[in-house]
Amino acid sequence: MDVVGLLEAASLLVPEGTATENDITVNDVWDHLTHDEWEVALCLLEELGGGRPLPVTFWQSLATAAEQLRLETSAAWCHWRGYETRHGIIRAELTLTPVHESHRRTAFSGAGVLRPMWDIGGTTPTGEPDLCVAALWAESVPLMEPGGRATVRLAPLSPSRWGRITPGQVITMHEDRSVAGTAVVLDVRRPPEP
């Protein structure tokens, strides 16, 4: 399917009456599609997807359209949102350890590239922390600097191991044995029942 067909298919999955904070609706998307403004239409659909949950096929269509338009970050974000649709959403306020207290000396991409380990409270049979891997997407921050702070979204590699996470819980991020950051869980939304 071509870009226009993918964006049209995605727009049909947005419930009637859905609007963003800026009163953008699916009608605005259609207006941009008729003027061949595909990137704008894609961005508007991403915004419309930020409100109520939309099906995985919505995010798959947007990801494929973004890939065809060679918009790598947008494609990665749409794939991320599709993952969240299937597995749930975990948002947290993350504060990274300052450079003088950490092994990390450089910034890293906030766009879902880093897959650190997390101490979420579990222990191994020997009493050691049972670390779980989760990718990290920083909201509104392209790069995470040592000592920096941002609201992040976590995509656990094994979502079932994160079933006891609750808002207000403090979890720690690890890139090695030392603590690389501390996060306070803000929001946990479980996936819909199959």
Rank of each mutant, 00 (worst) to 15 (best):
M1R: 13
D2P: 07
V3C: 15
E8G: 01
L12W: 13
L12S: 13
V14K: 05
E16S: 15
E16N: 12
G17R: 03
T18C: 12
A19N: 00
A19E: 14
I24E: 15
T25L: 03
V26M: 07
V29N: 09
V29L: 10
W30T: 06
W30F: 14
D31L: 10
D31G: 04
H32T: 03
L33K: 05
T34D: 10
E37M: 10
W38T: 02
V40H: 09
A41F: 13
L44H: 00
L44Y: 01
L44R: 02
L44Q: 04
L45Q: 04
E46Q: 11
E47V: 03
E47G: 13
P55N: 00
W59Y: 15
S61I: 00
L62S: 09
A63V: 04
T64F: 02
A66W: 05
A66F: 08
E67G: 05
Q68F: 01
R70T: 11
R70K: 15
L71Q: 12
T73E: 04
A75K: 03
W77K: 02
R81V: 01
R81Q: 12
Y83L: 05
E84T: 10
T85M: 14
R86D: 11
A92T: 00
L94Q: 08
L96Q: 05
L96V: 04
T97R: 14
S102N: 12
F108V: 02
F108Q: 01
S109G: 09
G112Q: 06
P116S: 06
W118P: 05
I120R: 14
G121R: 07
G122I: 00
T124C: 00
P125R: 13
P129W: 06
P129A: 04
D130G: 01
A134V: 00
L136N: 00
A138L: 10
E139M: 11
R149H: 08
A150D: 05
T151F: 09
V152C: 03
L154Y: 04
A155K: 11
A155R: 14
L157K: 02
S160C: 12
R161S: 15
R161L: 15
G163A: 13
T166Y: 09
P167M: 10
P167V: 09
G168Y: 12
G168K: 13
V170C: 11
I171Y: 15
T172K: 11
M173K: 11
H174Y: 10
R177H: 10
R177I: 00
R177T: 04
L186H: 08
L186T: 13
D187N: 09
V188G: 06
P191M: 05
P192G: 09
E193P: 06
